[in-house]
Design a protein around this nucleic acid. Structure first.
Lengths: 161, 161
DNA sequence: CTAGGACTTCGAGCGCACTCGAACGCAAAC
DNA sequence: GTTTGCGTTCGAGTGCGCTCGAAGTCCTAG
């Protein structure tokens, strides 16, 4: 795990507090807390906890455009970083690459596509909610099974998993 | 979506009630509500909401052994179905195939491996919990973004996603 | 008797999302 | 001046989890 990656810090912030996710944490996550000046590929990779290989791959398939410095090296400006933060979070929540490509293509087309983008986001929200419900159920089932193992260490019936 | 699959019904049950997941729902999910007699591959596929192809694949890689009837067709007895219910739920919660193979191999080795299986379950529980936290954060971020789109339909600044 | 449909085995193919390796460039450190 | 190290491009390879197709078998209905 990278030392300074965003997700880790946001999650750590959540450990401290309880109840609904506070706006500042989201803000920190969404805005990449005011990225100052251009970053190298290694810095962005560390920030997003992914490999430089993956960042080049994302650029290759058209998720971001990245400028080059005098030496031909990638130079990620604030906009590029913000975009990648968005990509990383959406990927983490299970959005497929093609949907992400679609969304970002729309974003590049300007404000006319806002309604369509909103639809995509609403759909994605529902997907996340469904995942949350399924995971909650899986967690309950796993804990149930743990309880049957941990509750008593006696013999079990044949065929048990 | 299959009409009678387990997960759908468990999720539907959860819609009705609120608060912590009740034991009966878990029981229904874990025990496949008292499977009576042997089932065909099509019936199991429908129950688990997966294709016959996938069931054959699971058997091929050693996740289950399945008996054949007089005509050479697969005949899933209650134990096989229970095992597959377990497999399906673990897969849904993101457990990798190799971990599942490992776990089931241990289960086949008998009661001596209960402690090791317990360890695997505890580890998996932590994985699910981490996923839940990350998803919750992703949901909050997505809803935040939806709010910025839905809140006002005015022009946005350049480079916005 | 024949046609349909659900099943069987086997191996090959696929889509996704990376991940890697090779060969090279450039710039600072020793 | 050469070594170290971080970067570059390009294409190919990997691992996962299915998914499919071909060719054949078996039972049932018409």
């Amino acid at each position: 795990m990278a030392t300074g990656d965003l997700m880790s810090r946001a999650l750590a912030a959540l450990e401290e507090i309880d109840g609904p996710v506070p706006v500042e944490v989201i803000h920190g996550l969404v805005d990449a807390e005011a990225v100052t000046g251009p970053m190298t590929i290694a810095q962005v990779a560390d920030l997003l906890d992914m490999s430089p290989h993956t960042l080049r791959y994302y650029e290759r398939i058209g998720l971001v455009e990245v400028a080059r410095d005098a030496g031909g090296h990638r130079s990620y400006d604030a906009a590029a970083v913000r975009r990648l933060v968005f990509v990383a979070r959406m990927r983490l929540s299970g959005m497929a690459m093609r949907d992400l490509q679609h969304y970002l293509r729309l974003a590049d087309e300007g404000d006319d596509t806002v309604p369509e983008r909103l639809d995509l986001l609403l759909e994605h929200r529902d997907t996340i909610r469904r995942q949350l419900r399924e995971l909650t159920l899986s967690l309950a089932a796993t804990e149930y099974k743990i309880a049957t193992y941990g509750g008593h260490t006696g013999p079990s019936s044949a065929g048990e998993t």
